[in-house]
Design a protein around this nucleic acid. Structure first.
Lengths: 203, 203
DNA sequence: CTCAAGACTTACCAAATGGTAGAAAAATCG
DNA sequence: CGATTTTTCTACCATTTGGTAAGTCTTGAG
């Protein structure tokens, strides 16, 4: 018998995979259990209900996402281009863990049962990012704009990237790294033009 | 008794609404029927199966989408900015019929049972757009790039718009027209810089 | 008026779904 | 080892699901 939280981790991983591809409603606990060579009741023992499993997967994913971005947000080497750092690290997450973005996409859907929880879970990260941006604005390193707006736009672009990767795969385009890089550039230049103070704009 | 295709139309409309919000798997024929004050078997009578209903909704939506873009693609007043026309009309569809974009989003998901059909349905529109772009390239009005790539990028941006609108609503942002306009501007400038021939670039 | 075709309904059903109850096995610890 | 707790399983169950079969009702043509 698997000691410690090993089984739990396995369930979480497979659940993320399933939720982010075939969706929450499309995932059946029986199928999930079979894929893990486990009985359904083991899943329910660890997570109480299907909804509980979704919440756990969500919490876990947001935690990982937060960890990936935390270091960039807290790093204080202000001389480097931090916007570029931020965009770069977000895109790294998107490319390395497309499932995670797929989950966000699935869950941020209007009718999703987990939308409120996603909002709650993401808000610390969001406020942190907004606080950072406003600090930058205060010091004059960043133009005064609606931080929340810019953030959401950037967010949806990244989630869109994950979508795009799948669309490209469907359409038969094999290499996905090139368009990803292109899109990153697009986002970066958008952020630059909307954030760089006017007097510093040389581009 | 409703003559002509009235009932059929009603079913299609509600199905689009349901599929694009709570998803295909999340939609039950019973609920759909109840919402229409109809018996489930009436739905099955018209569309044979749930999958058949999805296909019908898909065909219908792609048809509407195609009609919206057809006129722009066929219009031959080459002196005006046709890229702007195209982007504008696509965004008009996105804002007026967010459900349609929601459906695309739902259906272009990796595990979706309708992904292949979507590809088939969309490909005429896609090839038409690509042909148009290549024609423009040939005549020198457009820079030589990978037309398919640009198209897919633009496509995912538009679908992302629908997503963004919902995210903004979830986050409590009321006015969604401003970010939509902003994003349209973003897409437009992206397309301009990547499509305008170098010798003509004055921006 | 008749009658065939179309539209819609009632009656059912097998399979799948999320979930409960409680036994059995395994791990932990004194 | 023995007792207790944690983990996993077998056995069920109520409900929902998409779908079939067979009617009833409506309409329109001859």
């Amino acid at each position: 018998m698997a000691p410690r939280g090993e089984t739990k981790e396995r369930i979480l991983a497979k659940a993320l995979e399933s939720f982010s591809t075939i969706g929450y409603d499309g995932t059946s606990l029986d199928d999930l259990a079979e894929a893990l060579d486990i009985r359904k009741q083991t899943i329910l023992y660890h997570f109480v209900s299907k909804r509980g499993l979704l919440n756990a997967v969500l919490d876990d994913s947001v935690k990982k996402l937060t960890e990936s971005l935390e270091e960039v947000l807290t790093s204080t080497n202000s001389n480097r281009d931090r916007i570029e750092d931020l965009v770069r690290s977000v895109f790294r997450v998107a490319l390395e863990q497309p499932l995670l973005l797929g989950l966000l996409r699935e869950v941020s859907r209007p009718g999703s049962p987990a939308a409120p929880r996603l909002k709650t879970q993401m808000s610390p990260l969001m406020s942190r990012a907004i606080a950072w941006m406003e600090e930058e604005m205060e010091s004059g390193r960043m133009r005064r704009t609606d931080a929340q707006l810019v953030l959401l736009s950037a967010y949806s672009t990244v989630v869109g990237l994950a979508t795009e990767i799948e669309i490209l795969r469907t359409a038969g385009v094999e290499r996905v790294l090139r368009p990803a890089a292109q899109r990153r550039q697009e986002l970066l230049s958008f952020l630059r033009t909307s954030l760089t103070p006017l007097e510093k704009q040389t581009i």
